[in-house]
Amino acid sequence: MRPPSLYVPGSTPVHRADPVTKGVWAASLTLAGFLVPDWRGLALLFLLNAAVLARAGVLRRVAGLVLASALLVVTFFVAQGLTHAGSGEVAFRAAGLPFYREGLVFALTLAFRLWNTILAMGVLVLTTRPQDLVAALLMRGFPPRAGYAVASVVQLLPTVWAAVAAVLDAQRSRGVETDGGLGRRLRALLPMLGPLVMASLTAAQERAVALEVRGFSRKGPRTVFRPVADMPGALAVRSLGLALFAASAAWRAVL
């Protein structure tokens, strides 16, 4: 098993767009989704983001994420359909229970909000290397220590992940059973996690020394060695995102 990752490498215009512009877009459209009161409006946002994702060539990946949310969507329809009566109009009955029309429409709205979140955030996370995002934030005055905390997870997670197999081997060879009844497997939890955590914390201790040596706690200005330039037309794209957000807020206010 490999450590999780969502980034899909590529060189489409969406990939090349700067992380801040994509971030503004993703945040505005996600929030817009929660303001638009009607599922039909949400469907428009959905299509807009789907078009961007198609241009980035990551539709297949995002479809996987949408499918993974299926269970949540089903619970929307069941829970809201059964309990959100509104005017009391029953759409249909299943197993003797009434499913209300307004509840089902509300569930559809919720489902689109969920999908809209996945798609809008997907524009950012599926096409941006986490390191580039952090570099872009650092250039805008994001504190370097916080930037390090986020960026280094990308590098460190695979190393801790790889140690799981080694620890499993070592403990099984000393007689720790990792198969069998629930009790037995529960007892293997500490011998598994103990070495992983202790080795990681010790490594963190040494890594802190290495960071000190490299001037990590030095005061004064820092250089961003690989500056991330804004994409051409960045202002226009960001404005469009914010405009869509404003329009959604207006729609909400009017209703």
Partner: peptide, 17 residues
């Protein structure tokens, strides 16, 4: 002053890829 430690991998900061 520059310092290096025994374990080669624990000195990789993880800040860059």
């Amino acid at each position: 002053v520059g310092l290096t430690l025994q374990n080669p991998y624990n000195q990789i900061t993880g800040a860059r890829d």
